[in-house]
């Protein structure tokens, strides 16, 4: 199957030192990948390369079949509408309500937002935030913010969802709840790449999803297996 995101011999350096070297990664349609590694190992950097927030210094990255080096900024914007991103710090516009934040991707894509209101209500129910739709992001708890960020990431029904340590600041129950939402998305056919350093969370997901676990070690990405 043709990968949606494909890294070939990709390398990235910062401040004169290599973060990665010769990284190969294929994210195929409907796959679920965990990305693990100690803090500072480069999980966020690798994910940023997947949605063109960073460009590789060496090698190639293809997103939806197109080389990222051949993309201009408009192309990148269009690609990002096909990739939903959830950050650990959520990155909301704090002066807009939760509902407005969730609808923002639809608005910037120039879609008729009124048509997405039905989607919005469905999404708010899905992430259990219907009662908070008019709240401002700073008024939400950590778990609520992450769920709202997930709702925003999927409002345009993207093919890929990238979640960078979404459970990092959440308690166990809330982390599992968020993970279950990502698993649901995967079952709907979305490709999911989730960074986490919480091995227990990965182990807990085994019953629900067939996920690949990638570990960043020695500036390389390895497929983790029996050591989990």
């Amino acid at each position: 199957m043709h990968p949606l995101i494909e890294l070939k011999k990709a390398g990235f350096s910062y401040g004169g030192g290599d973060i990665f070297r010769d990284v190969d990664l294929h994210l195929t349609k409907g796959s679920f990948h965990f990305l693990t590694g100690p803090s500072g190992s480069g999980k966020t950097t690798l994910m940023k390369m997947c949605y063109q927030a960073l460009m590789p210094d060496t090698g190639t990255i293809k997103v939806f079949g197109k080389d990222v080096r051949a993309m201009d900024r408009d192309d990148v914007a269009i690609v990002r509408r096909r990739i939903g991103v959830v950050h650990q710090d959520c990155q909301f516009l704090d002066h807009l309500s939760v509902a407005e934040n969730i609808l923002l991707p639809s608005q910037v894509a120039g879609r008729d937002v009124t048509q997405d209101v039905a989607n919005l209500n469905q999404l708010l129910r899905w992430v259990s935030l219907t009662d908070h739709m008019n709240a401002l992001p700073p008024q939400l708890s950590g778990g609520e913010r992450q769920r709202a960020a997930l709702a925003r990431a999927v409002i345009l029904s993207p093919e890929v969802v990238i979640a960078d340590e979404p459970t990092g600041n959440l308690d166990w129950d809330m982390a599992q709840r968020l993970l279950n939402l990502l698993i649901e998305l995967n079952k709907m056919g979305k490709t999911v790449l989730m960074a986490t350093h919480d091995m227990n969370l990965i182990r807990a997901s085994r019953q629900s999803v067939s996920a690949r676990v990638l570990r960043i070690q020695g500036k390389q990405v390895h497929l983790a297996g029996a050591d989990l």
Binding site: Y51, A53, R73, D74, A77, I78, R80, R81, V85, H87, Q91, F92, L93, L104, P105, V108, A109, G110, R152, L156
Partner: peptide, 16 residues
């Protein structure tokens, strides 16, 4: 700057 980063993250074109 932060607002611009968020907008770019969710697919806003520079023109928008």
């Amino acid at each position: 700057r932060q607002v611009i980063q968020v907008l770019r993250l969710i697919g806003a074109r520079d023109n928008y």
